[in-house]
Structure formats: C-alpha cells, structure tokens
Design a protein around this nucleic acid. Structure first.
Lengths: 160, 160
DNA sequence: ACCATGTAGATGACATGTCATCCACGTGAC
DNA sequence: GTCACGTGGATGACATGTCATCTACATGGT
C-alpha cells in the first residue's frame, strides 16, 4: 500500500531542544532538592508541601478537599498521604460539625515543629539547586512561563 | 533560651512566584500529556521514552546501562521497566558477547510499530499542551533554562 | 593461579501514586 | 417524608519508583 499516512508534524529544532530541557530539568532539580530534604529532615516533598500549606492556614487547619484542590492533588492521594502523616503524628484529622460528611486536617505541635525545623535547610537547598543558577532575567522568564501555562486554568489556586 | 536561630534566608516575592511556577507547571502539563498518551496509545511516558530512545539507536538496540544513563534513570528502574515492556513484547533482552556481564535491549517489530503509531498523536499533544501556549521568546527562555541547569552536569547526555 | 575489588544487571521489600469503588451524609424534587 | 442524586472522604487493588542486596563476570595486583 502506498502509505498515505500524513507525515506527523515534527518538532522544530528549537522545539526539540526546549522539549528536552522540559523533560530533563524538572526531574533533575527536583530529585536533588528532594534528596536534600529527605536527608536533612526525613521528609518527602509531599510531606513538606502538606506541612507548609497547613502551617499557613488560619488555625493551622483546613478542609481536606480544599487542601487537595490547592495542592492540585487527587483526594485519594491526599487521603493516603494524610494517613501516613497521621501515623507519624504530624497531622490529625478532625470531624467537622457544619458538614457531617467533611473532615479537616490539623497540624499538630509536632508537625509545626517539624516544618519549622525543616524550612531553613530546604530554602537553602532550593536556592543552591535552582535560584543561585538563574539570572534575574531567567527568574522573570520562569515566572512568565508559570503565568502563561496556568492562565488557561481559570481556578489556578494562588501560590502558597 | 533567647532563640539565637538566624532568620532563614526567605525567598523574595519574585523567587516565591518562580518557585510556585516551578512546582506547578511541570506536573500539570505532564499529567495532561501523559493522560493523552495513555488514552491514545496505551503507553506510559516511561514506555514512550524507552521506545523513542531505542528507535533512534543504531540497530535499534542499546546496552542497558547506557540507556539508563541516557535517560537519567537508575539501572534498577530501567530493569523493572524493561521487564514489564518485555512481557508486553515491546522489547527483548539479548546477551552481549563482548562482555559476559552485559546485556542489550532490542526494540522488537511490535515495539517499532507501537512507537510509530503513537508518535503523531503524542507530538500533537505536546504541541497542544505546551508549545502552542508559548511565544517564541518563551521557547527560547525554556531552552536557556535547560542549558543553564544542565550546564553543571559535565556529562549531560544529548537530547534524544 | 588467586584474591580483592569493581561493574552490569536482576530482584525483593517497601513507599508512593492511580483508579475504581464504597460508604456516609447533604440537597432538592416530588 | 423519601427517593434520586451529588459530594466528601476512605479504602483496596494495582502500577510504578527507590533502596539494599545478590549474582555473575571483569580486572588488576600479587
């Protein structure tokens, strides 16, 4: 048969390089930061995200599904994660009176202490593996990339 | 005690925004692309990466640890991945005569057909979820970010 | 030849994420 | 009231990744 398949719309040279950058740099940098975090504080990035979010919430508590949305996680993922963190005493679940279905997560004292102790080294690690490498223009470019890509999503939650 | 802990070196406003962008956009875009890929072709991104690499190798075969390095994967991860892919008939392992320890992966005919069938839709998906959103300047910025961040790594393998 | 050490790869236990499903409760039409 | 349906959350089965470990072979010093 005369292979009528249309030639796929290949990537340009630049797009190919950008694609490779995209696929490489995030896992690379994140793996380094995650390794530091685990070594310094015994926390995973997921742990840190949850603790960090909660520590900034009024009352250091939040509705579970609100937290999931904010983190862009599935409810299932968060539920599993909270179960593990609860077993380590970092957070606690509490029922909510207003809505018999709902529940909140609360940061425990231990959890608060943990995130407080972990933050400085983590910040330093983020600087060392990412921001120290970037020029101000590149920092700005990264922000713009973020804005552009999240712009489609009407409900993109704020930073946190 | 008089809390002599030095105030951690917090992120600036811009750095915070850049950090949020960093943490959000990659998982976000990749999840979309991965979902498309799975739906269109029944492949995971890991599957696609391996098939894509192999299809570009001379003889469509490669030493396993060379492939792992190139993908920036651990040998263990690749070994598990190849086991699964071998069970699906996408690749085949072969012993290597020159080195009794080593082994090669070979892309099977089925694997070649699979990657060929998957590529067009995948390319289209990558365009739709990423490149169509970016201006030429942003594309360039992404390339530069990649160069900057991988520059430290002397042995950063080429694109692929 | 012999032994210590290094490299290639496989493997098993375990951590984490996904999906489908389940249960309990809320909400609105009737 | 009650019945259908939506929502919040938990859970179990399963896919994938990590680390530690194991085997087999290679290599270099003696």
């Amino acid at each position: 048969m005369s292979d009528a398949a249309p030639e796929p719309h290949w990537l340009t040279e630049d797009e190919m390089r950008a694609w490779c950058a995209w696929r490489r740099i995030f896992p690379l940098v994140n793996a380094e930061i995650a390794r530091d975090l685990g070594k310094d504080s015994g926390l995973s990035e997921a742990d840190y995200d949850v603790l960090s979010m909660l520590s900034q919430c009024p009352g250091r508590r939040r509705r579970i599904s609100g937290l999931a949305e904010h983190l862009l996680w599935s409810r299932s993922r968060l539920s599993h994660q909270l179960t593990r963190m609860e077993q380590r005493g970092l957070v606690r679940r509490e029922e909510v009176v207003a809505d018999g279905r709902g529940a909140e997560v609360v940061l425990t004292e231990a959890g608060l202490g943990t995130i407080g102790a972990a933050a400085p080294a983590h910040l330093e690690s983020v600087r060392r593996h990412l921001f120290d490498l970037l020029t101000p223009a590149q920092l700005e470019a990264l922000i713009q990339l973020g804005d552009t890509i999240t712009a489609r999503r009407a409900d993109a939650p704020p930073c946190g």
